[in-house]
Design a protein around this nucleic acid. Structure first.
Length: 571
RNA sequence: UGUCCCAUGGUGUAGUGGUAGCACAUCUGAUUUUGGUUCAGCCAGCCUAGGUUCGAGUCCUGGUGGGACAACCA
């Protein structure tokens, strides 16, 4: 390559707004020039692809600037939480390719939060309210109407202190009293109208057991936890924008009683949540699908959970690339699921070996091929990557081909088998279709063809131009398999305005189709769980972990782009 | 009758006040031992009205439209 006097243009990669803020803060020496983030899931469900977006920015931005990102479980509500979720969350983060610095729990700070709450009470900035949830809600007012003060708002500090103590001993029933911060019942921000910061929960906590009976609310735990840990940039989704003033309020109060070095101060930044067309993303609804048995668990390949995508054959690379493509903004949009599909095809195209499988078999008999003869044909594993080598596949007189690859009366543009037309059998011979046999019901039972011995792959005559190429397997040597086809649409339509409509009514009834009579080439008996393959034109498939000796199950990760069906539909 | 956030092709995103770019989707053509892949190309955009400025997608103001906020959830 000729040398030039010009340095190669440094690739300009635009920063998203969060990266821009971080770089500016770092340049200005804020927080002593440090960056620290956290990924703060509540362990009440499995991670989904929306979390992947958060994970990529939380971990990615710390990594990029030499900081650390901690994993912090926001476990302040024992009723909904469980260690099952803790374990799955850790597994999924690692699968995505990230490693946290420290593993923290909001429950680690229960004592410190308690002390902070006590300090607030002593400063006259918190009080025990003994009203019912309904009364408190009523007094809160509406977004357009100021709230009214609780009759307990100005009770003596000593009284609140004593009652707060009791909230944690077990003698106060759930719901009988709460601790509220005393801020401003007329604030235009609803979260400032004396927010509840502690409530009584008697359900044992998955980590602290029955030590505590009073638990802090999210707003009273999140910012404080960030402050305790030294988080500099607390990145979350847009619905927390309205919480930010409260986040700041608590940290300001906390700073007064627990000053830290320098100018350190955590700040919250919010980005747009991921929503995907035809996809259920809410944790609540996903839990409902699992609990009602509408799917086969959190890792059902139709689920948008990370374990679901993993089981379906999505790679973590493809998900990270997808996240990179969609970006981070403050605009509430909806991403076309086609973009996700493009990301996985792009990745699997390079990684997945091409193998032969017939999912809807019909017999093709090569009438002029010698009975009992077996030829080993070479099959290139991946034309995109020579280093992946090749394997062999048995060719015999009786084969299976795809039922849709034969038509007795074919339209002009049909490139496949039809009487009188020649096609290439992939990696093997060119064959000429001579006819078929039908049963009484008119269904095709067998298809007949003759082969041209001079057209075996690699031979001189094999260059002859034919209309199409078909995949096939030997009837005798192929092995049975089950194939699960997932429709690209989990929902038949996008969830929208009609929020009241039960989303279960939107579930696509054809989201899963199980084919049990499939035949795959023998080579696949060596495949291991989660291995991915391209079944030629049928798409990308992976081995389901439920496959047991003798029973192979494949999930279709994603079909190939299908231009044939477009042509077909036009006619 | 509130506060806050947002508005760039069909979708999602870039754009120090100076030629609006990228990806996906769609469509067209070339290549192809799978109608895939790869390559080339087409179509298509700054919500609106004012203001500031030599110059506005960018700054200001008013509209319009969308979203968030009234859990003892996070």
């Amino acid at each position: 390559m000729a040398e030039t006097n010009f340095a190669p243009e440094e690739e300009k990669q635009s920063l998203n707004f969060i990266e821009a803020i971080v770089e500016k803060d770092l340049a200005e020496g804020k927080n002593n020039g440090k960056i620290q983030t956290r990924f703060p899931p509540e362990p009440n469900g499995y991670l989904h692809i929306g979390h992947a977006k958060a994970i990529c920015i939380d971990f990615g931005i710390a990594q990029k600037h030499g900081g650390i990102c901690n994993l912090r479980f926001d476990d302040t509500n024992p009723i909904k939480e469980d260690v099952e979720y803790v374990d799955s969350i850790k597994e999924d983060i690692q699968w995505l390719g990230f490693q946290w610095g420290n593993e923290y729990y909001a429950s680690d700070y229960f004592q410190e939060l308690w002390d902070f709450a006590v300090a607030l009470i002593k400063n006259g900035k918190a009080y025990i309210d003994e009203q019912s949830a309904e009364e408190i809600a009523k007094q809160k007012g509406t977004p357009t109407q100021a709230g009214t003060d609780s009759p307990f708002r100005n009770r003596p500090v000593e009284e609140s202190l004593a009652l707060f103590e009791k909230m944690n001993t077990g003698e106060i029933p759930e719901g009988a009293m709460v601790l509220r911060a005393k801020i401003d019942m007329a604030s235009s921000n609803m979260h400032f109208r004396d927010p509840i910061i502690y409530r009584v929960i008697k359900h044992p906590h998955h980590r602290t057991g029955t030590t505590w009976k009073a638990y802090p609310m999210y707003d009273f735990a999140h910012g404080e936890s960030d402050y305790f840990e030294g988080v500099t940039h607390s990145i979350c989704t847009l619905e927390f924008v309205v919480h930010r003033p409260l986040y700041d309020w608590f940290i300001d109060e906390l700073k007064k009683i627990r000053p830290q070095d320098g100018e350190y101060r955590p700040r919250q930044y919010e980005f747009n949540r991921l929503s995907l067309t035809y996809t259920v993303m809410s944790k609540r609804k996903l839990l409902q699908l699992v609990q009602e048995g509408l799917v086969n668990g959190w890792d059902d390949p139709r689920m948008p959970t990370l374990c679901g995508y993993r089981r379906r054959g999505y790679t973590s690379d493809s998900i990270r690339n997808f996240v990179k493509r969609i970006g981070y903004t403050k605009f509430d949009g909806i991403i076309d699921v086609a973009l996700l599909e493009h990301s996985i095809r792009e990745d699997l195209n390079v990684k997945a070996p091409r193998v032969s499988a017939v999912i809807d078999p019909v017999k093709l008999i090569i009438t002029n091929y010698p009975e009992g003869q077996v030829e080993m044909m070479e099959a290139i594993n991946n034309p995109e990557d020579e280093s992946m080598g090749s394997h062999e596949i048995e060719f015999t007189k009786e084969l299976y081909i795809e039922r849709e690859d034969f038509m007795e009366d074919a339209p002009k543009k049909y490139f496949r088998l039809t009487p009188g037309q020649e096609v290439r059998l992939k990696n093997a011979y060119i064959v000429l279709c001579t006819g078929c046999k039908k049963n009484a019901a008119g269904e095709i039972e067998e298809i007949y063809a003759t082969y041209d011995p001079m057209t075996r792959s690699g031979m001189p005559d094999s260059n002859r131009k034919v209309t199409g190429t078909l995949h096939w397997v030997s009837a005798e040597h192929s092995i049975p398999a089950e194939v699960r086809l997932y429709d690209r649409l989990f929902l038949a339509e996008n969830p929208s305005e009609e929020k009241d409509k039960d989303f279960r009514e939107l579930l696509n009834p054809d989201s899963l189709q199980i084919l049990t009579n499939c035949r795959v080439e023998k080579e696949l008996s060596k495949a291991k769980p989660l291995d991915s393959f391209q079944f030629q034109r049928l798409g990308y498939f992976n081995v389901d972990p439920d496959s047991k000796d003798g029973k192979l199950i494949f999930n279709r990760t994603v079909p190939l782009k299908d231009t044939w069906s477009k042509i077909k539909n036009k006619e």
